[in-house]
């Protein structure tokens, strides 16, 4: 192969590469373009044929969020629900992961398998019995109720990831510490947890994203602004807040407010998200 043809082939490959990249990015982002556009379009221009690619830009749809729905309450609920679910799941999962990784007892690996496999139990299947349980406990339409079930759903994946990270903490460090007479919880606090900060951060971020995005539990267990989250509010605006139609502009504005925090999170914490999702197999 001559240098010339090699270079020409190389250029062709480059062009193909950038073309594919362009298509890829376009497809990945197109719905958001359309949503951002709708969120800025005035109501009366929204249903025009052909669609209005350059509408008069308006902030009305965002203003409507504040005026037409209890947006602030939903936002606060979303944050509290996500944070509390993260806290619950991470604490329980960390303890469990340490137990599985470090304390050798018979049957431990089968318990771990069951716990991880319980990730496969579809949440939708548990909804009717859970509704009855929460109703008996008086936890319907409370953040406590949805946090409990969401925190639980997050546990298997968290344990699965954390076990592999605990195993990577050199056990000698802990043994040295125990010989020094340090109590187990001090070992956890001063040695294991500091060594696992990146792993914990990863799990915290991933669980937060999952809880923030969860629709099912608030959809079926929340009825008022006492515990409804943003994900439910978008379905609510879609079908019920006005009896007559779907205010696409407001739906889009709501979508934008939910998407922006996630995009910021991804931009800042990409590395951690990836290492968690791939269970640390990225070097």
């Amino acid at each position: 192969m001559t240098a010339e043809s090699y270079r020409r082939r190389n250029t062709a490959v480059r062009i193909l590469l950038y073309l594919s990249l362009g298509i890829f990015v376009f497809i990945a982002l197109i719905p958001f373009y359309w949503m951002f556009l709708a969120s800025l379009t005035p109501r009366h221009q929204l249903f025009s044929i052909p669609p209005n690619y350059f509408p008069d830009v308006t902030a009305d749809n965002f203003a409507a969020l504040i005026h037409q729905i209890p947006f602030i309450a939903y936002l606060v609920n979303s944050l509290v629900f996500s944070a509390a679910s993260v806290l619950l799941s991470v604490i329980l999962s960390f303890l469990a992961a340490y137990g599985f990784a470090r304390i050798e007892v018979k049957g431990s690996s089968i318990l771990l398998l069951i716990l991880v496999l319980s990730m496969a139990l579809p949440p939708i299947v548990t909804v009717v019995p859970l509704f009855q349980i929460l109703r008996t406990l008086g936890l319907i339409d409370t953040i406590t109720g949805i946090t409990l079930v969401m925190g639980s759903v997050l546990i298997p994946f968290s344990v699965w990831v954390l076990v592999s990270f605990v195993k990577r903490v050199p056990v000698e460090m802990e043994e040295a510490a125990t010989i020094d007479g340090a109590r187990l919880f001090q070992v956890l606090w001063y040695i294991v947890i500091p060594a696992m900060v990146p792993a914990l951060a990863t799990i915290i971020i991933i669980n937060f994203i999952n809880a923030w995005n969860n629709l099912l539990f608030p959809l079926v267990f929340s009825h008022t602004e006492a515990s409804k989250t943003l994900t439910v509010s978008i379905t609510e605006v879609f079908q019920a807040r006005t009896p007559y139609g779907r205010p696409w502009g407001v739906i889009s504005a709501l979508g934008v407010t939910m998407v922006v925090p996630m995009i910021i999170l991804v931009l800042t914490a990409q590395k951690w998200i990836v290492s968690g999702l791939t269970r640390g197999s990225i070097k």
Binding site: V25, P31, W34, T231, L267
Partner: peptide
């Protein structure tokens, strides 16, 4: 790096939001 980040976006966006965006699309 940027494109890899963009790759994550469809996955971290609430499913219900992208579903409505597509319905509109």
């Amino acid at each position: 790096r940027l494109v890899r980040t963009i790759n994550l976006i469809p996955w971290v966006i609430p499913m219900i939001v992208s579903a409505y965006a597509f319905r509109w699309l």
